[in-house]
Design a protein around this nucleic acid. Structure first.
Lengths: 232, 232
DNA sequence: TTTGAAATGTGAAGATCTTCACATCTTATA
DNA sequence: TATAAGATGTGAAGATCTTCACATTTCAAA
């Protein structure tokens, strides 16, 4: 049994693609955009993976989401005068992205009410995700942050296996810690505790969650739909 | 010198008011809506104050924002099928709110592109606020959470005085702690430290910030516009 | 297959927060 | 103005996380 749990997207991608100015071949390790830069475009991921994060002044990184096929990023600067990117977008996996000029998409949204509607729906979902993640991190400490991140990752990158859900994304302890706002060491210790208890197992940097229920119960997750509870 | 620093709102309130189904007299201490209830309306605050928060299973409260005149709440459930409120709305100050049916506003947004545009702009701003607050809380610990909350409150409820900015909102240590995800005691200790250093002073449950620069520097705030950095 | 480099694992010390317990202060109202 | 309820202040103990230091393991490229 191998079945992707990734939810389908609502935005009409083909419609957006027509607005694209150009496409860019992305290179692993490079930045699609960095915080502080003038924001004139938003990006539609055609292939590859892009991690959106915030870098703090002292160099620590808070990872917010990983965008895959058909995701949009750079959207936070829409509807703002003379915007700059608030976040950075690091290429995790090479691929291709389409760049759409901010003013082009704004104009199109203004004229095309179906697109506007879909876009609002997307923003709305997106906002709910942030809101619920916020709650997990603030109310449930670092353990809550980790468990929440793992749950979200099963929703975004989970593949059902006979013994659980494989998060099909290679992750180092450091990278996972960046999503939770925890140190590498703490992340490592928490993961090992989960391993010892049989909740998860790790093979080749990929985590399999054997007991999702445990993670959900620990953070008081109301079993919300995957739409609100994913990392992208 | 007494001057409000509250930013102006972009949504055309009068336009929204015409869509209202009914208006409700709010009573202090009551809930406008509570998480888990079926969400069929969203609310436009005409007067009074409403606090939006998330209650955790073990009874702790995470306060997210305080809505005042012309603010919208209950918006998180828009564009969702059979939604339930994710948050609770507690009346802090009695007043009046207009209730707008979810399907009415959705239909109107679909037909009225100017309204749709304004609404998206509002959502977009709203999202940025959450995002930046998120960063402060996760990257800068509890002190960061408190400083961030204080800064946001000066933007939302600040009144310029000769010796600093008065946050014109009576707040107990507990209530402030609920915004930061900290215990009452920790909040109290941190506030006293700030008092000792002359950064703030408190009179009749209202905080005056004398040294906003200090707070901003401590959390590495890029002096972002008040639009992104307020609690409502 | 060797060999660095990167990633993981772990003890120990210290910083940060919470919790509990209780004292003191403030405020509303009877 | 008496008084009770609510809010604030604070020490001490303990939980939670981070940081530092270093050992071990894994992995990809020479």
């Amino acid at each position: 049994m191998v079945q992707s749990m990734k939810p389908t997207h609502s935005i009409e991608i083909k419609e957006l693609l027509q607005l694209a100015d150009r496409t860019i071949k992305t290179v692993k390790g490079q930045y699609l955009f960095q915080e502080g830069e003038h924001a004139e475009e938003l990006y539609l991921i055609i292939s590859g993976k892009v991690q959106i994060s915030k870098i703090s002044k002292d160099g620590r990184e808070l990872a917010l989401r990983i965008c895959g096929d058909n995701d949009i990023c750079g959207e936070l600067t829409l509807f703002t005068h003379a915007p700059r990117y608030l976040l950075s977008a690091l290429i995790l996996e090479e691929g291709e992205v389409a760049a759409i000029k901010k003013d082009v998409i704004e104009r199109e949204i203004f004229q095309n009410s179906a697109l506007a509607f879909e876009f609002m729906k997307w923003m709305s979902d997106h906002f709910r995700k942030t809101q619920t993640k916020f709650r997990d991190l603030v109310l449930n400490g670092k353990k809550g942050a980790l468990y929440s991140t793992l749950i979200r990752m099963t929703n975004s990158y989970g593949i059902k296996k006979s013994d659980g859900i494989l998060i099909d994304l290679p992750l180092t302890n450091q990278e996972l810690g960046n999503f939770c706002g925890t140190s590498r060491e703490s992340t490592n210790r928490m993961l090992n505790e989960l391993k010892r208890e049989g909740i998860i197992s790790i093979k080749k940097s990929k985590i399999t969650v054997h007991n999702l229920k445990f993670l959900k119960e620990e953070i008081g997750c109301e079993n919300c739909p995957a739409t609100y509870c994913s990392i992208e």
